[in-house]
Each structure stands twice: as C-alpha cells, then as structure tokens.
Simulated assay, not measured.
Amino acid sequence: MRLSLYDQEHEDFRSMIRTYLRDEVVPAYPQWEADGLVPRSFFERLGELGVMGLTIPEQFGGSGEPSYRFGAIISEEVSAAVVATGPLRCHLDVVLPYFLAYADEQQQERWFPGFASGHLLTAVAMTEPGTGSDLSGIRTRARREGDTYVLNGAKTFITGGMLADLTIVVARTSDEENPRQGLSLLVVESGSPGFTRTGPMQKLGMHVQDTAELSFDDVRVPVANLLGEEGRAFEYLGNNLPKERLGIAVTAVANSRAAIELTKSYVRERQVFGKPVASFQNTRFELASVTTEIDAAQLMVDHGIVELDAGRLSAVDAAKIKLFATEAQGRCLDRCLQLFGGYGYIAEYPISRLYADARVTRIYGGTSEVMRTIIAKSLGI
C-alpha cells in the first residue's frame, strides 16, 4: 500500500543499489560492525557508481538530480538489506543541501568534485553540551580577525564527525538582541590547528555510524569558508529541516518493514508447543497490527516525498510525518522483537540491532516533543 512514486528509471537505480549492497556490503558488514566504522572505500565506491554525486551539478562530475526519490530508494534498499551505512544519509540528505544552496562559485569549484567522487565527506555541527533542539542557545563563537574567523567552542553528538573532511559549524559571530540572529555557518577543514575530534562515541545503537565530540580552540577558519551570508544560519538551518525530518521518516518506515519481514520468517520456522509461532492468533494479530500502522506511515512518507519534490513540504507537515513514522517504528520494533522471545535480545539476531537503532529516531532531527510543539503551534494552541 503506497503511492506510485517510481518509474522505470527509478527501478533500474533500485536494482543497481540492491545488487551492490548484496554483493559488496552485506559480506563486509560484520567487519564494519566489529570496527564500529564504515570504511572510506565504501563512499569512494558509491562515487564510482554515481550515487555520491546524484545532486551535484553536472559540471562538477555529478548528475544534477533534483528529485529526492533516488535518495529514498537508497534508504529503502539499505534497510531491506538489513545493514546500515553510517553517515551516508546525513552527508547526502542533511549536509549537502546546505552546500548546494549556499556555496559560492569558488566554494563549488573547490569542494563539489570531491563530493561527487566520494573523496570528500561532510558533517554538520549544531548540537552542543547543554544545547540540543534550542539552537538559540548556541555558545560556540567565532570572532573576525582580518581574513579569518577565530573559532572557539565545543559540539557533541555529531554524526560522521570522525570521518568528515569538511564540517559545517554553527557559530555565533555577533551578539544580537534576538539570540536566533547572529549565527553563521563556517566550514572547518579536517586537520585545522586547534580542531580536535573525540570518538566514536559508544551508543546504544547505530554502531557503524561514527558519532563524535568536537572541540575548537582558536581554530582559524578562512572567511572564504563562510557558507552563505554572515548571521543567517538560523534561517538556513530551518530551510532544510523538512527534508531532514522526512529522510528520518523514510528510514523509520523502511527499517520497520525490514523488521516485519524478519519476524515473519522467524515465526514461521520457530516451533513452540509443537506448532509454529506463526500459527498462534496473537502472532497473526500482532503482525497484522504493525503492518497496518506501517502502511499508514508509508502513505504519509510517500506523500511527503511528492510534496518535497514539488517544493511544497511545510515544516508542520514534515513534523507530522516524522512524529507518526518514528513513533510507529518504535511500537513496531518492540512488538516484533517480542515475537522473537529471548532470541530477540541476542545481538547476533538482526532484530536486536534494528530495535536498538530505532530508539534514536525519536530524538535526533528534533525530538517527538519538539514535533508535537510545532504541530500544536500550527493549531493555534
């Protein structure tokens, strides 16, 4: 049950992604988990396949594809393969849109070819210790000295922070009466003196997604690395939030579908009291319930993709989609794991990883509470 989003070009792309994941990623995935990191060769290989440059303009080696449908297919196929790809989606869906929207000609020439080839990876550093969803509380500062900014502060929970070659840092460049003003986007290059990274942080789930703590001690950032105009970061960040939140919802639904498929296979094979677990009414009812809820979430997600491609996806609708899809994912994964019994709690069973990974989707990209606040404001209450 979903909208008709994809034509033959999309399905050919899906087939290519599916084959690549099956042949090259699935066999290597246990080593990725052991290392707690996705190797850079993965991104470079995706560059060769044209995936890393999907949205990059053609003159820089990309495809210049404006539609998000291809990005959604990547998320769906990664989930169906029951693997994870670390910071890939963050790089493609969350960070690159800032470069595409605000990079000037010189910045495009410097960075876009590396994005398209998979040799340049990115991260965005917003969250600080003590400052999460409320970006107006950012304390990281950058003062102008000639042709450089001097950056000081700290960031935490930064997806892809260990691998990133370029990190967009949200910093306060001036003090304004409105704390949402005076924020700017500075692109910090790896290896800059005074820039240190600590990690990967040990997390409940998302074990192959490197998450880092960053610190800046008098880091000199060239003014040429200012992304967009000084003082407009809050506006810029808000512009991309609908796409970021839709992307989280796409993955939430796709991971839920993978969990349902794993559970269906398990309950058909597992015997209890001499009968397959699938033969019990409770099993059938539980799977019927979660499937129906995820189908509903799928329709919301598909509608969101259509609206995003048409330039109509609002912040409120994106909040509704993320809220519903991620909360449904949490319920789905909990009920699916329950049907595995004790084996669902064992790490070697993929359902265990899917369960742990699902918990953060109600936190990052804006918590469920923040989503409800956005929706409530739209109701005038």
Rank of each mutant, 00 (worst) to 15 (best):
V219T: 09
E230Q: 14
K264E: 15
R232Y: 11
N225G: 09
Y236F: 09
V250C: 08
Y266V: 00
L237A: 07
N225T: 07
T251I: 08
R268I: 06
S215L: 04
L246V: 09
T263M: 04
S256G: 15
R232N: 08
T211K: 14
V267E: 04
R257I: 03
K243P: 00
K264Y: 07
R232Q: 15
R245F: 05
V250A: 00
E244H: 08
E213D: 13
L227C: 10
V272A: 12
R220G: 09
V272C: 03
K264M: 13
D218W: 02
G228K: 04
P222L: 13
V223C: 13
Y266K: 10
S265H: 08
R270S: 02
N240H: 02
G247E: 01
T263R: 00
V223F: 08
S256R: 04
S265D: 14
L237N: 03
V223Y: 05
T211R: 15
D210R: 08
K264F: 03
P242W: 12
L262V: 08
R220V: 08
V223E: 11
G247Q: 00
R245V: 02
N255S: 10
A233N: 11
V267I: 06
F216I: 05
V250K: 03
I260P: 01
V223Q: 11
P242L: 07
Q271P: 01
P222G: 10
R257D: 08
D218T: 04
E244D: 05
N225Y: 01
S256F: 01
S265M: 06
Q271T: 15
V223S: 10
F216G: 04
E213Y: 10
L237S: 03
V250R: 06
S256C: 13
A249W: 00
A249C: 01
V221N: 05
V272Y: 06
K264I: 07
I260K: 03
V253C: 06
R270E: 08
